[in-house]
Amino acid sequence: MADTVQPKKTPSDFLGAIIGHPVLVKLNSGIIYKGVLACLDGYMNIALEQTEEYANGQLKNKYGDAFIRGNNVLYISAAE
């Protein structure tokens, strides 16, 4: 069964698979960015499109394109 469906194996497989998809990025500060993951690198620097910034669950800002410095990232999760 495991042969027919290739499960996601490593964290970077996961990240690779969600490029181009809607994601949710939480920073250490608690601020959340939702957007389409344009790309990321090994430092977890992130480029997002159609970014929405949420603080305390409230939408604070909308941005076109945003760059997030990787050291601030707590997690990246696939939205939806």
């Binding site: 490029i19 344009a38 076109g64 945003a66 760059f67």
Partner: peptide, 22 residues
């Protein structure tokens, strides 16, 4: 000290992510 950089969205009109093969 940098957390986030925002880009003037006029910079590119084409959608960024090309769907890449896994």
């Amino acid at each position: 000290g940098v957390i986030l950089g925002l880009i003037p969205s006029i910079l590119y009109t084409a959608p960024l992510p090309k769907k890449l093969d896994n």
